[in-house]
Amino acid sequence: MFADELKSLRRLGVRHVLLQVLNFASVLTTGLMIWKGLGLVCNTESPIVVVLSGSMEPAFYRGDLLFLTNPASERYHTGDITVYKIPGADIPIVHRVMETHDTVSKKSGHVTASPLGQRQLILTKGDNNPVDDIELYQGLEWLERKHIVGKVRGFLPYVGYVTIAMNDFPQLKYALLGGLGLLALVQRE
């Protein structure tokens, strides 16, 4: 089955294979650059996330794609849907802000010019959960800005399901990657 491919590979020579490897690498790095560039513009470590659970149904279902931003000049408001990551927990959570408390700094001799210079205490809840998220905070009483990855701005349904399928069936991932790599090597031009 692969005899033909192997033959053509031998005929094309080392130079061609190297060129294809280079092409492949440039595609990968371009992707990475776009991702990191987007992260810089949106001020968040992951500008695009996939919904993994049903706790925000019927707004978001498993596999929906969310676009996040986290402007440093904006406070969080009630009703905002935020993605947060508690230290020690491995998966970020997408839930809605239900309470915000903008405290005033008690340090004497300090004046904060902007409300953003002060601690904002946040409480979240999943639309589909009956109670708020205190149990999910792992001992923290409130969320704060440093826990929040971003605010959901845009929404694209179902597209992220590909990544969930790849996580659930790792064979699919390897088959896809292997197939793409092989094609990139074997293709003429």
Binding site: T78, M98, E99, T100, H101, D102, V104, P115, D127
Partner: peptide
Amino acid sequence: AKGTKNEVVIWDRIVR
């Protein structure tokens, strides 16, 4: 009294 500004959601409803 301490100057903390609070916003608290006390009721919600999803309209489909």
